[in-house]
Write a protein that binds this DNA or RNA. Structure first.
Length: 275
DNA sequence: CTATGTACCTGACTGC
DNA sequence: TGCAGTCAGGTACATA
């Protein structure tokens, strides 16, 4: 379940292998994960382009070609990118649900796999279309200045967790890190946003950033699906303090953690520590 | 504006 | 061992 740290670790891994490579051939096995192109009627997925850079905003990633074309990659819940050196192949269950394959000029294959097919690939005619698209999202939770993020958490009565998950407010926070950051900031997930004080918002943004950075250092959270393209797993999962620990003792006060649905998502929190 | 609900999907897990 | 049922959650869209 890729959130920002998972996507960023994938981006870095792909950047190291893809920049400077030329796409020789693209094979689309399933058309339904490819979205209508932004800014062009029949764009392919970077066929015969040279790859110039890889960018990320929130949970979205983009491959940028030197002809200014771009390909947006949203991994959804179970999307993975595999990098297979020449001669090596995916085996067993990893060989299933491979929807798009790119052959590169050094013989490497890049493979987009997504068992649940919540992910999407969107071709953009130019980086301008990419910028347009990303301007609809809030500031990136890791790249933006904390002050800017705090300002995104000012107006409204929605539950603070619902706002954290809203990618138009802040881009990159998903269910796991939302729960973890709210626990760190000692804020109840159901608190209406405009009941937060300035120090509350300060703590919340601080904890969002701390958790995301910490997870990134550890290669992301792994407890089911996440892999970097070279197949390694993230190790941050064991540092979770609330997510997936319903009923287990709070790490602060040992009171059993509560759970329920907030913003139509499974949510875990401590009744005693999070007011 | 906000809040809620549903659809999209498959794999992992639980209980019988 | 099998099989039905439940759960997981990112995103888009419809509904109230």
């Amino acid at each position: 379940m890729p959130e920002l740290p998972e996507v960023e670790s994938i981006r870095r891994s792909l950047e190291a292998h893809l920049v400077g490579r030329k796409v020789v051939r693209v094979r689309i096995e399933r058309q339904d994960i490819v979205c209508a192109p932004s800014g062009g009627s029949h764009l392919d997925l970077l066929a015969s382009s040279h790859i110039k850079s890889l960018r990320r905003h929130g949970k979205q990633m983009a491959i940028i070609a030197d002809d200014r074309r771009a390909l947006v990659i949203q991994l959804g819940m179970t999307g993975r990118m595999h990098l297979m050196p020449k001669g090596r192949h995916l085996r067993g269950s990893d060989a299933r649900h491979c929807h798009v394959k790119w052959l590169l000029d050094d013989g490497t294959r890049l493979i987009y796999q997504d068992s649940r097919r919540f992910g999407r690939l969107t071709p953009c005619a130019s980086v301008d279309h990419l910028e347009d698209r990303w301007s609809q999202l809030g500031p990136d939770a890791l790249l933006a200045r904390p002050e800017r993020l705090r300002n995104q958490l000012v107006k409204g009565q929605r539950a603070v967790k619902a706002v954290l998950l809203d990618q138009r407010r802040i881009a990159g926070v998903g269910n796991i890190y939302a729960d973890e950051a709210l626990f760190g900031a000692r804020l109840n997930p159901m608190r209406p946003l405009d009941s937060l004080s300035e120090p509350d918002r300060h703590r919340l943004v601080h904890h969002v950033r701390v958790r995301l950075r910490s997870a990134l250092r550890h290669g992301g959270t792994t407890f089911s699906d996440h892999r970097t393209p070279d197949g390694s797993v993230g190790s941050w999962g064991s540092k979770r303090q609330v997510h997936g620990r319903r009923g287990a003792p709070c790490v602060n006060c040992a009171h059993p953690l509560s759970s329920g649905t907030v913003a139509s998502r499974t949510t875990v929190w401590c009744d005693r520590c999070q007011a």
